[in-house]
Write a protein that binds this DNA or RNA. Structure first.
Lengths: 149, 149
DNA sequence: TATGGACCCTGTAGCCACTACAGGGTCAAC
DNA sequence: GTTGACCCTGTAGTGGCTACAGGGTCCATA
């Protein structure tokens, strides 16, 4: 047989077959040859490229960045400054997210720590979310019928 | 005029009008009365509920959790154990994300630190992504035409 | 030779939480 | 009466897949 099946490279790279077809559809992975029965037949080049995509994704690079990294990887004589820039930008993004989530965690932990396990009426968590009622009892307006589908 | 416009409560809560209409569509915010010109006319209850949603979202609660929190907030005599559970679950999720991103950050930083700003051919970042070529030159298979729209 | 089951194919729709139009209507000020 | 800011509905798009539905292919076994 003249190549690997999609299930084979899926197993080898830890990627689902649907995802591989998706990568082909969006032009990230080149369309492979087909067998007589219309099965995709991948070669080593595909396997390498898919591994690359997979590792980049595991490192959290968005697909656009992966696309750029792939096209940069092909120009072996060029400077890798562009590669460095993409990676640094992603690192900065990851660090920003960590910082944001840290703030969130502290806020949440602070709110939860105040909960005395009483009734909802004096629950600190609800209180932290509800707009502090000036008159004492601001009713939250709830939907009478759910508009879902 | 018999109520606030959508633009008004949008401004007051820092939510976009489209988002408010979206919340109405999915049954999170009750449909308000309408004016003669078919404009939505919100009351204080709506404003309170939207503020609640907004704060919960700012704390990162997914909409399903917000929905539950809202329905719990209405039963003032019940125990707030369920509220506490939702909040703790969310906190755990946030902490998990922080941990995951921390691992990612360290990996990225390690890779980037090795970049010597030379050519792509010996770029450590590309090397970290590419499958270590056994024969020396494994070409990454790139798509000849991009299948995009 | 029949058949079962594991795999493969295409195409479409769904997930989350919005966001961005297109194509129109309303309202108040000038 | 006309401008411009707002409002309406409905649909489609975002990222990165994932999950079908409804079929076809391939190979081993009975």
């Amino acid at each position: 047989m003249p190549g690997r099946t999609i299930g084979d490279i899926a197993k080898r790279t830890g990627t689902r077959a649907e995802t591989i077809r998706y990568y082909e559809r969006i032009g990230l992975l080149p369309a492979p040859a087909r067998t007589g029965g219309n099965y995709r037949a991948y070669d080593e080049g595909h396997l390498g490229r898919l591994s690359f995509i997979r590792r980049a994704r595991d490192l959290g690079f968005p697909l656009d960045a992966v696309r750029e990294l792939l096209s940069l990887a092909d120009r072996r004589d060029r400077s890798c400054a562009a590669v460095d820039a993409i990676a640094r930008q992603h690192l900065a993004e990851v660090e920003r997210k960590i910082a944001d989530l840290g703030v969130l965690r502290d806020e949440l932990a602070g709110i939860i720590g105040q909960c005395r396990q009483g009734t909802i009426a004096d629950c600190r968590i609800i209180e932290a979310l509800a707009p502090h009622p000036p008159g004492g009892t601001t009713r939250l307006n709830r939907p009478d019928r759910c508009a879902e589908r």
